[in-house]
Simulated assay, not measured.
Amino acid sequence: MKSFSNEDVRYRPDVIRMKWRMGMAYGIAIGLSFAAATWGLDGYQLSQAHGSHPWLKFIIGALICMTVGGAAGWLVARLEKTILALPIYLGVSLLFSWLTLALPFQIFPKVVALIDPETGSMLNYIFYENFSSRFAIAAAWVALFITLAGILQIPLTEPAAFSTSIFGRLMPLVVCAVIMFINGTIVDTLNNEPLRSAVQQLNQTIQFTVDHQGQEVDKALARTMRMSSLRSVLDVVDQPRQIIVGGYDPWLGQINVLVHFGEAWVDCVVVYNQPSFCQYAKQGTP
Rank of each mutant, 00 (worst) to 15 (best):
L32F: 14
T100H: 04
A29C: 11
K81W: 00
D8I: 01
P159A: 00
M24T: 10
S97H: 09
D249W: 12
L234R: 15
W20P: 05
W39G: 10
V210Q: 06
P54M: 06
Y272S: 14
A102T: 03
L195K: 10
D14F: 06
C278K: 02
I59C: 03
L202K: 02
N130H: 14
L56M: 15
K282C: 02
S121T: 10
Q207R: 12
A264Y: 01
R223Q: 12
A113R: 13
C268R: 03
W55M: 13
A160S: 05
G23C: 08
N124S: 15
A160R: 04
Q279F: 11
C176A: 04
V271E: 15
T38N: 12
Q106I: 15
A264S: 15
A49L: 09
E263L: 08
P117A: 03
H260W: 06
W39K: 09
Y44M: 12
L221S: 05
R12A: 09
V175Q: 04
P117W: 01
T82P: 00
V92N: 01
M18F: 05
A77K: 01
Q279V: 13
D14I: 04
A177T: 08
H212I: 08
G23M: 05
G262E: 08
N183R: 02
T157H: 06
A102I: 01
A160K: 03
R196I: 05
V271A: 14
M180D: 05
A138L: 10
A149V: 10
M171E: 02
A62W: 08
